[in-house]
Amino acid sequence: MRKVKRIAWNIGFGFGVVMLVAPAITVFLWMLSLSLKTELDNTDYPPVFIPNPPVMDNFVQVFERNNFLKYAINSVIVSFSATGLAILLGVPAGYGIAKMKATKAAVVILIARITPGLSYLIPLFLLFQWIGLTGTLAPIVITHLVITVPIVVWIMMGFFEGLPAELEEAALVDGATIWQAFRHVAMPLAKPGITVATILAFIFSWNNFIFAMVLAGRETRTLPVAVNNMLTFEQISWGPLSAAALLVTAPVLLLTLLAQKQIVAGLTAGGVKGG
C-alpha cells in the first residue's frame, strides 16, 4: 500500500515537472519548427508540427533579403564593447566600493537598476544629437553601458566583499602598492565573479532592444531591432521571421546552456536584470 502511494506520488511529481518545463520548451521548439518549414506548411491549418522535409530556405532568405550580416556585426561590436568597457571600469569600481564600504555608491547602482531604460533615452537622445554622434554605433555602445556597468559593479562589489582581506594586506605589508595588490592578488581571486559579470552583462546587452530601437539609423541597427523591423514589413512570412528570431537568440541560449552554473549563481545573488 505504502509502495503504491509512493509510486503514485512520484508519477504525480514527474508530471508536475513536465508541466513546469513544457511551456518553455514548446515555444522554442515551435520557433525551430516554423523556421524549418516551407511557407505553405507554416500557414497550414491544422498546424504542421514536424518539418517534412526540413528546409533551409528561410535561413538563406534571411541573409539574402536583409542586411542581416551587417546587423549581426553591429550587435557583436555593441555587446562586446559595452561589456568590455563595463568590465574595465566596473571591476576596479566594485573593488573600490567594497574596500571603502561606500554604501551610498551602492544605492546609486540600485536605483539605476530600478529606473526604466526608456527614461534614460530622452536626455541621451538629445545629447547625441547635439554632439553629432547619431548615425554611428557610439551612442548605442554608450547607452548599453547603462545596462552593463550596474550589473558588473553590483556583482563585483558583492564578490570582493566576500573575499578574505588577509592576502592583500600581506601584499601591502610586503611593499606592494594598492594597485598591485588589486591587480595581482584580488583580481585573480575574483576571476569566477568576473566570469559571471561578463556573461550576464553580455547577455543583457545582446538582448536589449529599446536603446538601439530609438538611436539606430538604417546602418547601425542591432539584431533585435532588425528582427522587429522584419515583423513590421513582412506581416505573414513566418518562416524567415522565425529563422531570424532563432538566429538572434541562439547565441544567448547556447551561452546559457554552456554557462548555466555561473548564470544561476549570478542571478540568485543579485537578482540582476538589464533594461
Binding site: 518553455a24 532592444f209 522565425s242 528570431a245 538572434v248 544567448v252 546559457t256 548555466q260
Partner: peptide
C-alpha cells in the same frame, strides 16, 4: 539539472525574438 536549465531559458532568451514567436502563435 537539464530540467532547470530548460526552465530558465525563457528569461535569457532575446525578448524581441520570443515576442515574434508569440505573435505568430
Amino acid at each position: 539539472g537539464l530540467a532547470r536549465t530548460i526552465f530558465i531559458l525563457p528569461m535569457m532568451a532575446t525578448p524581441v525574438a520570443v515576442a515574434l514567436v508569440w505573435t505568430m502563435m
